[in-house]
Design a protein around this nucleic acid. Structure first.
Length: 429
RNA sequence: GGAGAGGUGCUGGAGUGGCCGAACAGGGCUGACUGCUAAUCAGUUUCACCCCAAAAGGGUGACCGGGGUUCGAAUCCCCGCCUCUCCGCCA
């Protein structure tokens, strides 16, 4: 219940947040429950003080050889009353905790107010769309013809929204992940290889639970889930710890598979790699001092953009408005890469400062030189979504003959400068 | 998966029903003292919640987590989680 004081103190700001994000939250119910809880605690604690006094009195009476049975009987009554009161208090505690866990983070004052993506603001663009003297094809056509991607057999193995990468396709995925991780390492991020399965507490700490249970894969009969993003693992790395202030900022990166049930996305992006149940992502993550977190957000975005620049991919940076931001975020920049076949931009990275939202839920503090320990700020950003980068390369570097040119930065990882085109539209056996 | 041992404060480690928020040692902090460092001496050292306008003060709870027994639980009982040792199995 250590969030309670913080919550009460900022209630007005939370109400403003709900309006800005366009979500309905019953704050009146919160106030009523909070009020009753306090009254019950006061009453219960009075009884407990009485019980404690009697607990000193009883052995004294016994030692003096006096009869304590009257007091014993009275205390039995009191104990039962205490038990009933405590049960009601835990019930109220649970309701307050549930309530607080479903309230999203407060947006930073610099975030544009709006209820949907229409209110997002483009911050900058880099590069230009590639020019084709033929009609550019979508990546699934090119890739299946080239024999580097196979959806048909993925259906056999698992089901819809899964993919099999093959030959240079598989190697391109691996090359991208390695290129990303090596670049991050050079920028001072420590590489982490975490578990891909996480427990409920880890997911609650980042804000995925309890609200978004339906968007994840749950392992039946356990408290475990397939991770939807390594942001969860990286946050929980320091869960319930107080880190040394001198260590901040702590920068980490991780390559993992990510799993999303994509509930509610039926019929959306059903062709191609864009929206899969399983995809790979390299994540960048920072634990920072509260005074530095917005500077660190800018450099985090710059680190992600630099990857696209080295790959020569046209992209833009968009600042999300209040209504389009994620549950845990105070401020988010999306990076969107150009997609020739669709003639539009596609999200390839999302970089957020959650301020102390996740740190509070996860109990991550730092101890300053003087004074009390404080919550750190946590930042996360894709650097980058590997599958989406893969498809962006296939589409942006395609040739009329179906072959794909490989950007310079990737050639040593892939061991070739081009993926040969295929003639048919089905993957060979 | 089977058998056993165990989980106490910043750390090590006592504590088997009331005198334990917790001995003792170490560490940290404050002060004193000694050219400096070191040593020595004295003091101090958790967090959450409730009452109180606030401060001062008072109170409640917390010895892995959750239940139970009892007037009273770190201590007894049950369930769970985790760690260690041995055996089995396995990439």
């Amino acid at each position: 219940m250590h969030d309670l004081g913080y919550f009460r103190e900022h209630l007005a700001e939370f109400e403003k947040m709900a309006a800005d994000r366009g979500v309905a939250i019953d704050f009146a119910a919160f106030r009523a429950i909070d009020q009753e809880r306090r009254e019950r605690i006061t009453a219960a604690e009075r009884l407990k003080a009485q019980r404690n006094k009697a607990s000193e009195e009883i052995p004294r009476l016994k030692k003096a050889g006096q009869d304590a049975s009257a007091l014993l009987g009275e205390m039995k009554q009191v104990s039962e009353e205490i038990k009933r009161a405590d049960e009601r208090i835990s019930e109220l505690d649970a309701r307050l905790a549930d309530f607080m866990l479903t309230v999203p983070n407060r947006p930073h004052s610099s975030v544009p107010v709006g209820h949907d993506a229409a209110a997002n603001v483009e911050v900058r663009r880099w590069g230009a769309p590639p020019k084709f003297d033929f009609k550019p094809r979508p990546h699934w056509e090119i890739a299946e013809a080239a024999g580097i991607l196979d959806f048909q057999r993925a259906v056999k193995i698992t089901g819809a929204r899964f993919a099999v990468y093959r030959g240079l396709g598989a190697r391109l995925e691996r090359a991208l992940a390695a290129f990303f991780l090596d670049t991050h390492a050079a920028n001072g991020y420590t590489e982490i290889l975490p578990p891909f399965i996480v427990n409920s507490q880890t997911l609650t700490g980042v804000g995925q639970l309890p609200k978004f249970a339906a968007d994840m894969f749950h392992l039946e009969g356990t408290d475990l889930w397939l991770t939807p993003t390594s942001e969860a693992e990286l946050t929980s790395y320091y869960r319930d710890e107080t880190v040394d202030a001198d260590l901040l900022p702590i920068k980490m990166c991780a390559w993992t598979a990510c799993f999303r049930s994509e509930a509610g996305a039926a019929g959306k992006d059903t062709r191609g790699l864009k929206r899969q149940h399983q995809f790979q992502k390299v994540e960048m993550f920072k634990f920072t001092h509260p005074d530095r977190s917005y500077d660190e957000l800018e450099s985090l975005v710059a680190n992600a953009e630099a990857l696209l620049q080295k790959l020569g991919l046209h992209h833009r940076v968009v600042q999300l408005c209040t209504g389009d931001m994620g549950f845990a975020s105070s401020k988010t920049y999306d990076i969107e890469v150009w997609l020739p076949s669709a003639n539009e931009f596609m999200e390839i990275s999302s970089c957020s400062n959650t301020e102390a939202f996740q740190a509070r839920r996860s109990g991550i503090r730092f101890k300053p030189k003087t004074g009390k320990s404080e919550f750190v700020h946590t930042l996360n950003g894709s650097g980058l979504a590997v599958g989406r980068t893969w498809l962006a390369i296939i589409e942006n570097y395609q040739h009329a003959d179906g072959s794909v040119q490989i950007p310079q930065a990737l050639q040593s990882y892939l061991g070739t400068d081009r993926i040969p085109g295929g003639t048919g539209f089905s993957v060979p056996g």
